[in-house]
Protein backbone atom coordinates (compact mmCIF):
# COMPACT_ATOMS: atom_id res chain seq x y z
CA UNK A 1 0.00 0.00 0.00
CA UNK A 2 1.44 3.35 -0.98
CA UNK A 3 0.46 6.23 1.28
CA UNK A 4 -0.21 9.54 -0.49
CA UNK A 5 2.40 12.26 -0.27
CA UNK A 6 1.14 15.08 1.95
CA UNK A 7 0.58 17.57 -0.83
CA UNK A 8 1.57 15.85 -4.03
CA UNK A 9 4.30 18.41 -4.70
CA UNK A 10 7.82 17.27 -3.95
CA UNK A 11 9.46 19.25 -1.15
CA UNK A 12 13.18 19.93 -1.41
CA UNK A 13 14.86 19.76 1.98
CA UNK A 14 18.56 20.57 1.94
CA UNK A 15 20.59 17.79 3.52
CA UNK A 16 24.15 17.16 4.61
CA UNK A 17 24.71 14.08 2.47
CA UNK A 18 23.33 12.99 -0.90
CA UNK A 19 22.24 9.40 -0.20
CA UNK A 20 20.75 9.97 3.24
CA UNK A 21 19.17 13.23 2.03
CA UNK A 22 17.60 11.67 -1.08
CA UNK A 23 16.26 8.72 0.86
CA UNK A 24 14.86 10.94 3.61
CA UNK A 25 13.23 13.34 1.15
CA UNK A 26 11.61 10.50 -0.78
CA UNK A 27 10.26 8.93 2.41
CA UNK A 28 8.99 12.27 3.71
CA UNK A 29 7.29 12.82 0.36
CA UNK A 30 5.27 9.68 1.01
CA UNK A 31 4.39 10.69 4.55
CA UNK A 32 7.01 8.58 6.35
CA UNK A 33 8.56 10.71 9.07
CA UNK A 34 12.21 9.88 8.56
CA UNK A 35 14.62 12.79 8.97
CA UNK A 36 18.06 12.63 7.39
CA UNK A 37 19.83 11.69 10.66
CA UNK A 38 17.24 8.98 11.31
CA UNK A 39 17.74 7.53 7.82
CA UNK A 40 21.51 7.73 8.28
CA UNK A 41 21.32 5.76 11.53
CA UNK A 42 18.71 3.22 10.43
CA UNK A 43 20.67 2.75 7.21
CA UNK A 44 23.90 2.12 9.18
CA UNK A 45 25.67 4.91 7.31
CA UNK A 46 28.48 5.61 9.77
CA UNK A 47 31.63 3.61 9.09
CA UNK A 48 35.36 3.86 8.51
CA UNK A 49 37.63 2.21 5.98
CA UNK A 50 41.23 2.84 4.95
CA UNK A 51 42.15 1.05 1.73
CA UNK A 52 45.59 2.33 0.62
CA UNK A 53 45.84 -0.42 -2.01
CA UNK A 54 42.76 1.06 -3.74
CA UNK A 55 43.64 4.28 -5.49
CA UNK A 56 40.88 6.81 -6.12
CA UNK A 57 42.16 9.42 -8.59
CA UNK A 58 45.63 8.45 -7.44
CA UNK A 59 44.86 8.77 -3.71
CA UNK A 60 44.57 6.03 -1.09
CA UNK A 61 40.86 5.33 -0.52
CA UNK A 62 39.56 6.59 2.81
CA UNK A 63 35.89 6.49 3.67
CA UNK A 64 33.91 7.63 6.69
CA UNK A 65 30.64 6.06 5.48
CA UNK A 66 29.39 2.64 4.43
CA UNK A 67 29.36 1.44 0.81
CA UNK A 68 27.36 3.58 -1.66
CA UNK A 69 23.77 2.38 -1.96
CA UNK A 70 23.85 0.78 1.50
CA UNK A 71 21.92 3.52 3.29
CA UNK A 72 19.00 3.35 0.84
CA UNK A 73 18.98 -0.45 0.78
CA UNK A 74 19.18 -0.92 4.55
CA UNK A 75 16.64 1.80 5.33
CA UNK A 76 14.19 0.39 2.80
CA UNK A 77 14.51 -3.13 4.17
CA UNK A 78 14.30 -2.11 7.81
CA UNK A 79 11.28 0.15 7.31
CA UNK A 80 9.49 -2.26 4.96
CA UNK A 81 9.56 0.17 2.05
CA UNK A 82 9.88 -1.15 -1.48
CA UNK A 83 11.94 0.64 -4.13
CA UNK A 84 11.85 -0.41 -7.76
CA UNK A 85 15.40 -0.22 -9.14
CA UNK A 86 16.61 -0.11 -12.74
CA UNK A 87 19.89 -0.07 -14.63
CA UNK A 88 20.31 0.67 -18.32
CA UNK A 89 22.79 0.05 -21.12
CA UNK A 90 21.17 2.55 -23.50
CA UNK A 91 21.16 6.24 -22.43
CA UNK A 92 18.07 7.09 -24.54
CA UNK A 93 16.07 4.24 -23.03
CA UNK A 94 17.21 5.37 -19.57
CA UNK A 95 16.00 8.91 -20.17
CA UNK A 96 12.69 7.76 -21.72
CA UNK A 97 12.05 5.54 -18.69
CA UNK A 98 12.77 8.51 -16.42
CA UNK A 99 10.38 10.70 -18.43
CA UNK A 100 7.53 8.20 -18.18
CA UNK A 101 7.77 8.10 -14.38
CA UNK A 102 8.26 11.82 -13.87
CA UNK A 103 5.32 12.62 -16.17
CA UNK A 104 3.14 10.47 -13.90
CA UNK A 105 4.17 12.64 -10.93
CA UNK A 106 6.54 10.05 -9.45
CA UNK A 107 9.77 11.48 -7.99
CA UNK A 108 12.73 9.39 -9.18
CA UNK A 109 16.11 8.88 -7.52
CA UNK A 110 19.14 8.75 -9.84
CA UNK A 111 22.74 7.80 -9.33
CA UNK A 112 24.95 10.22 -11.26
CA UNK A 113 28.51 11.39 -11.63
CA UNK A 114 28.98 15.01 -10.50
CA UNK A 115 31.49 16.04 -13.16
CA UNK A 116 28.84 16.80 -15.80
CA UNK A 117 26.24 18.46 -13.55
CA UNK A 118 26.19 22.11 -14.66
CA UNK A 119 25.17 23.55 -11.27
CA UNK A 120 28.08 22.01 -9.39
CA UNK A 121 30.69 24.56 -8.22
CA UNK A 122 33.89 24.24 -10.28
CA UNK A 123 36.01 23.55 -7.20
CA UNK A 124 33.97 20.40 -6.53
CA UNK A 125 33.92 19.16 -10.11
CA UNK A 126 35.68 15.78 -9.91
CA UNK A 127 34.89 12.37 -11.40
CA UNK A 128 32.89 11.27 -8.39
CA UNK A 129 30.21 8.83 -9.57
CA UNK A 130 28.27 7.78 -6.50
CA UNK A 131 26.16 10.92 -6.22
CA UNK A 132 22.39 10.66 -5.72
CA UNK A 133 19.73 13.17 -6.65
CA UNK A 134 15.97 13.25 -7.25
CA UNK A 135 14.17 14.31 -10.40
CA UNK A 136 10.68 15.51 -9.58
CA UNK A 137 9.53 17.22 -12.76
CA UNK A 138 10.18 18.25 -16.31
CA UNK A 139 10.06 21.66 -17.92
CA UNK A 140 10.59 21.62 -21.70
CA UNK A 141 14.12 20.29 -22.26
CA UNK A 142 14.98 20.83 -18.60
CA UNK A 143 14.60 18.53 -15.62
CA UNK A 144 13.61 19.81 -12.19
CA UNK A 145 16.10 18.39 -9.76
CA UNK A 146 16.13 18.17 -6.01
CA UNK A 147 19.83 17.64 -5.40
CA UNK A 148 19.78 17.22 -1.63
CA UNK A 149 23.12 18.85 -0.85
CA UNK A 150 22.18 22.13 -2.54
CA UNK A 151 20.23 25.00 -0.96
CA UNK A 152 17.34 24.89 -3.42
CA UNK A 153 16.09 22.90 -6.43
CA UNK A 154 18.07 23.22 -9.66
CA UNK A 155 17.51 22.47 -13.34
CA UNK A 156 19.51 20.43 -15.80
CA UNK A 157 19.19 19.85 -19.55
CA UNK A 158 18.50 16.41 -20.95
CA UNK A 159 21.96 16.35 -22.56
CA UNK A 160 23.78 17.11 -19.30
CA UNK A 161 21.65 14.75 -17.22
CA UNK A 162 22.19 11.93 -19.71
CA UNK A 163 25.93 12.46 -19.53
CA UNK A 164 25.84 12.52 -15.73
CA UNK A 165 23.77 9.30 -15.58
CA UNK A 166 26.29 7.55 -17.82
CA UNK A 167 29.50 9.00 -16.42
CA UNK A 168 32.43 6.59 -16.63
CA UNK A 169 35.12 5.59 -14.16
CA UNK A 170 34.96 4.00 -10.71
CA UNK A 171 31.42 3.29 -9.43
CA UNK A 172 29.96 4.24 -12.83
CA UNK A 173 26.21 4.85 -12.42
CA UNK A 174 25.07 2.99 -15.58
CA UNK A 175 21.83 4.94 -15.60
CA UNK A 176 20.73 3.60 -12.19
CA UNK A 177 17.37 4.90 -11.05
CA UNK A 178 14.80 4.00 -8.42
CA UNK A 179 11.42 5.06 -7.11
CA UNK A 180 9.32 4.17 -4.07
CA UNK A 181 6.62 1.71 -5.03
CA UNK A 182 5.16 0.27 -1.84
CA UNK A 183 5.15 0.62 1.93
CA UNK A 184 4.33 -2.01 4.57
CA UNK A 185 1.12 -1.39 6.59
CA UNK A 186 3.02 -0.56 9.74
CA UNK A 187 6.43 1.08 9.62
CA UNK A 188 8.25 0.13 12.83
CA UNK A 189 10.81 2.85 13.41
CA UNK A 190 11.99 1.73 16.89
CA UNK A 191 12.85 -1.75 15.62
CA UNK A 192 14.52 -0.27 12.55
CA UNK A 193 16.65 1.98 14.78
CA UNK A 194 17.88 -0.96 16.83
CA UNK A 195 18.71 -2.98 13.73
CA UNK A 196 20.61 -0.03 12.29
CA UNK A 197 22.61 0.43 15.48
CA UNK A 198 23.35 -3.27 15.76
CA UNK A 199 24.74 -3.48 12.22
CA UNK A 200 26.82 -0.34 12.70
CA UNK A 201 28.35 -1.71 15.89
CA UNK A 202 29.07 -5.00 14.16
CA UNK A 203 31.01 -3.27 11.40
CA UNK A 204 32.79 -0.82 13.70
CA UNK A 205 33.98 -3.18 16.45
CA UNK A 206 33.00 -6.79 15.90
CA UNK A 207 34.39 -7.92 12.57
CA UNK A 208 38.11 -8.23 13.42
CA UNK A 209 38.88 -7.01 9.91
CA UNK A 210 41.79 -4.64 10.58
CA UNK A 211 41.19 -2.17 7.74
CA UNK A 212 37.65 -1.19 8.70
CA UNK A 213 35.86 0.14 11.75
CA UNK A 214 37.64 1.35 14.85
CA UNK A 215 40.53 -0.97 13.97
CA UNK A 216 40.70 0.65 10.55
CA UNK A 217 40.98 4.09 12.17
CA UNK A 218 43.86 2.76 14.23
CA UNK A 219 45.56 1.35 11.14
CA UNK A 220 45.08 4.69 9.35
CA UNK A 221 46.57 6.52 12.35
CA UNK A 222 49.67 4.31 12.38
CA UNK A 223 50.09 4.57 8.60
CA UNK A 224 49.73 8.36 8.70
CA UNK A 225 52.79 8.60 10.93
CA UNK A 226 54.92 7.10 8.16
CA UNK A 227 53.47 9.01 5.19
CA UNK A 228 56.30 11.60 4.84
CA UNK A 229 58.95 8.87 4.92
CA UNK A 230 57.00 6.47 2.72
CA UNK A 231 55.63 8.87 0.10
CA UNK A 232 57.89 11.89 0.37
CA UNK A 233 56.95 15.41 1.46
CA UNK A 234 54.94 16.39 -1.60
CA UNK A 235 52.72 13.31 -1.79
CA UNK A 236 52.25 13.20 1.98
CA UNK A 237 50.75 16.70 1.85
CA UNK A 238 48.55 15.77 -1.13
CA UNK A 239 47.25 12.65 0.62
CA UNK A 240 46.65 14.58 3.82
CA UNK A 241 44.54 17.10 1.91
CA UNK A 242 42.63 14.17 0.43
CA UNK A 243 41.90 12.80 3.91
CA UNK A 244 40.50 16.18 5.00
CA UNK A 245 38.35 16.33 1.89
CA UNK A 246 36.87 12.87 2.47
CA UNK A 247 36.08 13.93 6.03
CA UNK A 248 34.65 17.39 5.43
CA UNK A 249 34.17 18.30 1.76
CA UNK A 250 32.03 15.52 0.31
CA UNK A 251 28.96 16.36 2.38
CA UNK A 252 29.24 14.73 5.80
CA UNK A 253 27.48 17.20 8.08
CA UNK A 254 30.80 17.76 9.85
CA UNK A 255 33.39 15.49 11.49
CA UNK A 256 33.23 12.69 8.92
CA UNK A 257 29.52 12.00 9.52
CA UNK A 258 30.11 11.72 13.28
CA UNK A 259 28.09 14.85 14.10
CA UNK A 260 25.13 13.65 12.00
CA UNK A 261 25.32 10.32 13.83
CA UNK A 262 25.21 12.18 17.14
CA UNK A 263 22.04 13.92 15.87
CA UNK A 264 20.62 10.48 15.02
CA UNK A 265 21.35 9.17 18.51
CA UNK A 266 19.62 12.15 20.10
CA UNK A 267 16.55 11.56 17.95
CA UNK A 268 16.67 7.81 18.65
CA UNK A 269 16.82 8.56 22.38
CA UNK A 270 13.52 10.43 22.14
CA UNK A 271 11.82 7.82 19.96
CA UNK A 272 12.93 4.87 22.10
CA UNK A 273 12.67 6.71 25.43
CA UNK A 274 16.26 5.61 26.16
CA UNK A 275 18.40 8.13 28.05
CA UNK A 276 21.54 6.08 27.42
CA UNK A 277 21.34 7.13 23.78
CA UNK A 278 21.21 10.77 24.85
CA UNK A 279 24.48 10.30 26.70
CA UNK A 280 25.95 8.45 23.74
CA UNK A 281 24.96 11.34 21.51
CA UNK A 282 27.08 13.64 23.68
CA UNK A 283 30.05 11.23 23.48
CA UNK A 284 29.74 11.05 19.72
CA UNK A 285 29.67 14.85 19.54
CA UNK A 286 33.02 14.91 21.37
CA UNK A 287 34.42 12.39 18.88
CA UNK A 288 33.11 14.37 15.91
CA UNK A 289 34.68 17.53 17.29
CA UNK A 290 38.02 15.72 17.70
CA UNK A 291 37.93 14.72 14.03
CA UNK A 292 37.26 18.39 13.23
CA UNK A 293 40.41 19.25 15.17
CA UNK A 294 42.32 16.70 13.09
CA UNK A 295 41.11 18.48 9.95
CA UNK A 296 42.10 21.86 11.39
CA UNK A 297 45.69 20.77 12.18
CA UNK A 298 45.98 18.84 8.94
CA UNK A 299 44.94 21.87 6.90
CA UNK A 300 47.49 24.02 8.74
CA UNK A 301 50.22 21.52 7.86
CA UNK A 302 49.04 21.45 4.24
CA UNK A 303 48.99 25.24 4.03
CA UNK A 304 52.54 25.55 5.35
CA UNK A 305 53.71 22.54 3.36
CA UNK A 306 55.40 21.37 6.55
CA UNK A 307 55.45 17.59 6.36
CA UNK A 308 58.00 17.39 9.15
CA UNK A 309 57.93 14.14 11.09
CA UNK A 310 56.64 15.61 14.33
CA UNK A 311 53.69 17.26 12.57
CA UNK A 312 52.54 13.92 11.25
CA UNK A 313 53.19 12.42 14.69
CA UNK A 314 50.72 14.89 16.17
CA UNK A 315 48.11 14.04 13.53
CA UNK A 316 48.68 10.34 14.02
CA UNK A 317 48.14 10.74 17.76
CA UNK A 318 44.78 12.45 17.19
CA UNK A 319 43.63 9.68 14.87
CA UNK A 320 44.80 6.97 17.29
CA UNK A 321 42.87 8.73 20.03
CA UNK A 322 39.75 8.78 17.82
CA UNK A 323 40.20 5.06 17.13
CA UNK A 324 40.29 4.26 20.84
CA UNK A 325 37.30 6.51 21.56
CA UNK A 326 35.28 4.91 18.75
CA UNK A 327 36.27 1.41 19.84
CA UNK A 328 34.91 2.07 23.31
CA UNK A 329 31.94 4.03 22.01
CA UNK A 330 30.61 1.40 19.63
CA UNK A 331 31.23 -1.39 22.14
CA UNK A 332 29.06 0.53 24.63
CA UNK A 333 26.49 1.40 21.97
CA UNK A 334 26.00 -2.24 21.01
CA UNK A 335 24.71 -2.85 24.54
CA UNK A 336 21.78 -0.49 23.92
CA UNK A 337 20.67 -2.37 20.82
CA UNK A 338 20.16 -5.72 22.50
Amino acid sequence: MLPKGDNGAFIHRQSAHCESGSTSNLLLNYGIAASEPLVFGIGSGIFFGYFPFLKVQGMPAITYRSAPGGILKNTARRLGVRFEKFKFKDPEKAMDALDRLVDKGIPVGLQTGVYWLPYFPDALRFHFNAHTLIVYGRNGDGYLISDPVFDEPVTCSRKDLTKARFAKGMLAPKGKMYYLSDVREKVDIPVAIKKGIKETCRLMVKTHVPIIGAGGIRWFGKALRRWPEKYGQRKAILYLGHAVRMQEEIGTGGGGFRLMYAAFLQEAAQILGDDRLSEMSKSMTVIGDRWREFALYAARICKNRSAAGDNFDLLSDIVLECSERERRFFSDLSETAR
Binding site: V244, R245, K303
Partner: peptide, 11 residues
Protein backbone atom coordinates in the same frame (compact mmCIF):
# COMPACT_ATOMS: atom_id res chain seq x y z
CA UNK B 1 35.24 26.12 6.40
CA UNK B 2 38.82 27.24 5.93
CA UNK B 3 40.45 23.77 6.39
CA UNK B 4 38.18 22.38 3.67
CA UNK B 5 38.97 25.33 1.39
CA UNK B 6 42.70 24.74 1.97
CA UNK B 7 42.51 20.97 1.36
CA UNK B 8 40.53 21.48 -1.83
CA UNK B 9 43.05 24.12 -2.93
CA UNK B 10 45.92 21.64 -2.48
CA UNK B 11 44.18 19.13 -4.76
Amino acid sequence: WEPTNIANGIA
